[in-house]
Design a protein around this nucleic acid. Structure first.
Lengths: 234, 234
DNA sequence: CTAAAAACATGACCTTGGTCATGTTTTGAA
DNA sequence: TTCAAAACATGACCAAGGTCATGTTTTTAG
């Protein structure tokens, strides 16, 4: 990995001049995490700005009784959910766990502030990014509030295929390793429900495989399913 | 209302100098809406930056089969959900409807961009605002994914009491008029479920009244309810 | 290669809360 | 004040999906 310019692949730094980017590069600390690690935990003070460089990370919130929701799976280039908590000196609203091996860039509060202050375009990028994440979160809320399990899973697979999918001979393969439990936590259903519905999908040749290699064969049909009314079409 | 400085009461403009603020004031258009109006609809192109000045507004998304979720109730000073869609030339991700009579400030795309470019602190405010809204949305997703109806309603009432409540002799009165249907749409449950649970709460002296005048008598107990585990406490 | 652990799968049962139906009360406009 | 419309309330029924139990397959570490 080019130690010289670790920011090269991060869209949010595109607007910087090469010079500014080199300067930033000096401030950035790269850290690697593996299975079982926490990048940070819910409630930890948010003291730095994080960007995902390599691998994937899940942002998780958990309830007192041990259940979990996965709010978001980050892909390389993503800012961490809490990009803004840093401002208020607030704590992290959820925890971040690597999926497999990952590499994270960390920028100090001060450097982050400086960057934004001196570079309006970077601030624009952050605003745009947060705005997109907000609509995403709202779309998600809609799904959680109105859709039933089958539709939730369908939406989820569609979203994943566009964010983490690569075309292959027999369909779209997800480049991130997600167990049925992970899918369940993202869709807000029980694991058993997730396996059952993935079973249906599998039987209908819409998908195949499990975490190791999950392929989506029929995106169109999934889209239909996602849109089909919940139950009694009044 | 002071036509001279309509921005006076808007926190996001606090960081501006009086001079800048006066200049902005010239660019801002104030519009009033009433019952039945739409401030904008889902899918409309987002061409201006909106701020709520007076009254309350609900941001709603609806599904093909007529069901609705209310993502957020805006109070005076709030930026509209889609503050960032403006950047991408995207469309509004949801619609905005007044609750009663409201007054909205509208700032052209150009003036908004100028403001942010020339005034890093204003950009910081927007980032901070969006960040808070994002955590809020994520907290909400957690509730929708993990909590059951009773807890959802309890959380909702707690949130409302802090955002739109005023202390009174017998408890905290909500300054925004919300029907059972509104509460249901916010909590992601059916109207009947909302009335039934509000009925329980009423019998337990936790709340009283309906939309016209909704009062929360026992916040503490509601907090307990909100935290109580979903079901089998393993 | 093997053993332990993790992930996947499936059946039986039961609770939550959605749906439908119907009736009452409140609100607001004429 | 009156009357229609909206909001509130409640009961009966039922299905989606959560929970629990158990077994199989896959993955991974040593």
């Amino acid at each position: 990995m080019s130690k010289a310019d670790p920011l090269r692949t991060i869209p949010m730094f595109n607007s910087l001049t090469a010079k500014d980017r080199r300067k930033m590069a000096g401030e950035v600390v790269e850290t690697r995490y593996g299975k079982g690690d926490y990048i940070f935990r819910e409630g930890d003070p948010a003291e730095a700005f994080h960007i995902l460089k390599e691998g994937s990370v899940k942002c998780v919130k958990s309830s007192p009784d041990g259940k979990e929701v996965t709010l978001k799976v980050l892909m390389p280039g993503d800012l961490f959910c809490c990009a803004a908590s840093v401002f208020d000196g607030a704590t992290h609203p959820g925890c971040a766990q690597p999926i497999g091996n990952v590499s994270v860039l960390r920028l100090s509060k001060k450097a982050y502030f400086d960057l934004l202050r001196r570079n309006p375009d970077a601030a624009f990028e952050v605003i745009k990014y947060l705005g997109n994440r907000l609509s995403e979160a709202q779309e998600n809320a809609k799904v959680l509030a109105l859709d039933r399990a089958e539709q939730r899973l369908a939406s989820l697979l569609i979203k994943l295929s566009s964010r983490a999918g690569v075309r292959e001979a027999d369909g779209i393969r997800l480049t991130v390793r997600l167990t049925r439990q992970d899918l369940a936590d993202m869709a807000g259903v029980a694991v058993e429900t997730a396996t059952r519905i993935m079973g249906q999908f599998k039987r209908a040749r819409l998908v195949s495989g499990t975490a190791k290699r999950l392929v989506i064969h029929n995106l169109g049909r999934l889209e239909q399913l996602m849109l089909s009314a919940s139950s009694s079409s009044k």
